[in-house]
Design a protein around this nucleic acid. Structure first.
Lengths: 233, 233
DNA sequence: CCAAAAGTGTTGCGTCTACACCCATGG
DNA sequence: CCATGGGTGTAGACGCAACACTTTTGG
């Protein structure tokens, strides 16, 4: 399961299945583990085959094992799902199994209209929740940002993944104070409009201390964006 | 991996291996998934076989899949580890594979002296960290307590799992205020010495809101117990 | 000058830590 | 009356949401 943020939207890479079952349906990319390979290595290899991307520079994380005996009509298949986060991911290379792969906003992939193959809709929901939760406690959000990036870039990642707006000033304070998260480059970026912003690189810390917690309210799946824990009147 | 608290110590159920490899070594209980069975069902079945305990009343949770090709010298075995928490667990029933099963304090199991088979020491460490983390955000600690229980019982669970002392008065406030965690029975328990304590049952909530966070310092694996986030001078 | 985004200051509120203190019981 | 654990009250520190305000740019 590969996530990226483009056009301020959290997107996932799907493939159109060429074989039965679920021929023509959308599915998460995946494959079988080989002998002598760890699950992590298998995930990286499949990632490379699907996107021609060197996964070693991505954040990759084991999610959960799915084991319902009926989940694959062909027979018994146990899937260990992985979640990868990346920035600036290219469109999938042609000439591979992934020729029919494409990026889709997660909200569309889950909005009933597009039925995912197997139990992939459930897996995708779990992955989305994991990604949202990881942003609270870790610095993975920076994995979504091409370097160098601004605090505003980082904030738009959080807003895209969580689905609601954050207060720019409070967000900046949290992030710049978290030790080891942001490493200033000394450079600035001049946007089309507005004051130039300081540029940063990813720091060495992998944990975000203190964490940045979502409001206790359940965030909506849709695209509406409300202010930070405050209802718009 | 089955955890319980006895004598104010966090303990784990180990089995003595009767076959090669690692014959005579201690190991976590486990077994193979059968056809037509989910991983959860397999974990519950193995639990029943090992402890003669009805696992449906336990907290059971999938942890992580371990997949190093060299982790089992016999060949390729991928293990999906589960963590079960229970209270008042009996000694394993005789007459089964688990005749050689026994409870051990986790600290002894990890203190180099006892070498666990396979990569089970690493799995045990992951399980311990998961259990500790779960106490922060969920109400699973009550799964360690035979009902009915007092706030003091619950606090001793936290102290055993986390390995340090908590402030009784602040702990009580947190727990009684968390909605849906503790359900008063109206009864009291009269200890050998001291004021009687109110008795509670598990409430319906599964999440602890707000969470009870450990101090940011890394808790020691040993048995020393220091006060709540405060260095003893 | 204006719009827009970056960045700083400040205030009020709620939570947590540490600790003083009271309560109820058995010996 | 004392020791012991249960339970309440409270003052200070701290963190965070909200929002007013200043800064720096392009048009």
């Amino acid at each position: 399961m590969i996530f990226t943020v483009r056009q301020d939207q959290l997107q996932v890479l799907l493939v159109e299945r060429g074989n039965e079952p679920y021929r023509g349906s959308a599915a998460l990319p995946g494959g079988f583990v080989r002998d002598g390979e760890t699950l992590d290595e298998a995930a990286l290899r499949e990632l490379l085959e699907e996107t021609a991307l060197d996964g070693r520079r991505l954040h990759l994380e084991q999610l959960h094992a799915y084991s319902d005996p009926e989940r694959d009509p062909r027979g018994r298949v146990i899937t260990v799902a992985y979640l990868a986060l990346g920035s600036d991911l290219p469109f999938p290379a042609a000439g591979t199994d992934a020729a029919r792969a494409y990026w889709t906003p997660i909200s569309s992939a889950l909005d009933g209209g597009m039925a995912l193959a197997f139990d992939h809709a459930a897996i995708l929901r779990d992955g989305l929740e994991r990604a949202r939760s990881q942003l609270e406690h870790t610095t993975v959000a920076a994995a979504f940002c091409p370097e160098p990036f601004t605090v505003g870039d980082l904030r738009r990642i959080y807003e895209a993944v969580w689905g609601f707006k954050l207060d720019p000033s409070n967000f900046r304070r949290k992030m710049t104070r978290a030790e080891g998260f942001l490493e200033p480059t000394g450079e600035r970026r001049f946007p089309e409009v507005g004051r130039p912003a300081a540029l940063y690189r990813r720091g060495s810390a992998s944990l975000l201390i203190p964490p940045l917690l979502r409001s206790s309210e359940i965030p909506p799946l849709s695209n509406d964006q409300s202010s930070m824990g405050v209802r718009i009147v």
